[in-house]
Design a protein around this nucleic acid. Structure first.
Lengths: 231, 231
DNA sequence: TTTATTAATAGTCAATATGACAATTAATAA
DNA sequence: TTATTAATTGTCATATTGACTATTAATAAA
């Protein structure tokens, strides 16, 4: 039988940058690492790729194990392949970012894994190159969200325009004019207005919206430029 | 010494989708594979990642070996990690797309590797999942080029607006109005007009331009929407 | 030498999108 | 009843877009 005999083999891992939104802040799900080295230090959710699964499947499995959630929005964005990024031996890591509805998670939170949500700007120092991964993932999220309506993955089924606006502001780290934001979002046709109002954050109350079942428009220009700064 | 003892190790390769432009067509650099299995079949330029190098370095090395060129625009875009994508044993492939000035290449072409340029729409069938990789890379190129001025990497130092337009049309597979294209490109401030004209393709001749040394503008909106269809 | 030809380039224009800002509305609490 | 305030709608000058027309600069034919 033929073999690629002389070549070196490596460990391959997946790491997931898990984003959540609690209505006020963009958050990150971190876990205390369960194995040496750096045991008990904060790290991204990750694990080694098994022989029978693709990297995508490995990421979904690891996510399911740590959150209890299936069918999560998951996107591979970068391989971290420097020879010495892990001190024990060479491990290539395929990084994914995940967007989950933080409310769904709360109901199923699994204390066994010592997972915890941190505001993205107040996160603890992470092991290895995980800080770089977080920075890269955040940048990628901003980029992608500027062209595609993916931030809805972070919201519950019903949400208000002010909530959506805060989310956009958090992700892009800028203030947005409410009037222009409303006009632009509505013009995309992605939202359906509901009867009900949310009165928890204002006297007037804000109408709830839900996502139009025809989620993504093929033309990504639709959602383009939703968030230029108000300067 | 600590080890991640029980985990499976894999081979890791890099594969490069190398784009070129001859003034008329978008092209792809392919090689005849030099090892079993599928020896002598057309394949992407690739190779295994060595112990002492990152995946980025491996891609640059493989590219240098097959083209003689250094400092090429290279961007990692996807990992192909299905368990059975290689029939011999599991190999994860980190895919990169590369943009090179085809004229620079021609001078140094190396017949030793049986490399050949194919129009992207008339390429031979490729081994393994390389056809998928090419499709994905092309899509990624289109996407990226819509937001960043990377297509200039495919052109010589001096080029005309009609040449640039043909390139944009090839990459995006659509016709573009010449007047609107000129206006839009000039408004980016990326180009510097030269005295000289190219008269090889018209009586009037077209002015040469060169790229403004301040290459990339940080604000990617600048180059945005350069190429909507003229319907 | 004049004229027809043609690609390159410049100009026009209506429709739309943008960002800044002002005005109105719907509820609550004083 | 009124003051308050977030949510929502409206206004407007400016910029951008795509479609289209006009001009220009050269060559080649007459």
């Amino acid at each position: 039988m033929i073999e690629y005999s002389s070549q070196t083999h490596y460990l391959v891992a997946v790491d997931c940058i898990v984003f959540g939104f609690d209505g006020e802040r963009l958050k990150l799900l971190l876990v205390k690492r369960g194995l040496e080295p750096e045991i008990n230090k904060w790290s991204l959710i990750g694990g080694f790729v098994s022989a029978n699964e693709s990297t995508d499947e490995a990421a979904a499995r690891v996510l399911k194990k740590n959150t209890g959630l299936d069918g999560i929005y998951l996107e591979q964005f970068q391989v971290y392949g420097k020879p010495n990024r892990d001190p024990i031996e060479r491990v290539l890591s395929v990084a994914y970012f995940a967007l989950i509805d933080i409310h769904k998670y709360s109901a199923q939170i699994n204390a066994d894994y010592h997972a915890e949500w941190f505001p993205i700007n107040q996160r603890p120092e992470l092991i290895f190159d995980h800080d770089t991964m977080v920075a890269d993932a955040w940048k990628k999220l901003r980029y992608k969200a500027a062209l595609h309506p993916i931030l809805f993955e972070l919201l519950p089924k019903k949400f208000t325009l002010p909530q959506l606006q805060v989310l956009f502001e958090e992700v892009n780290d800028m203030k947005i004019d409410a009037g222009n934001f409303n006009r632009k979002i509505k013009s995309t046709g992605l939202l359906i207005k509901l009867e009900e109002k949310d009165k928890s954050s204002s006297k007037k109350g804000a109408f709830y919206f839900k996502l139009n079942p025809k989620r993504y428009q093929s033309d990504f220009h639709l959602v383009l430029n939703v968030f230029r700064s108000t300067k």
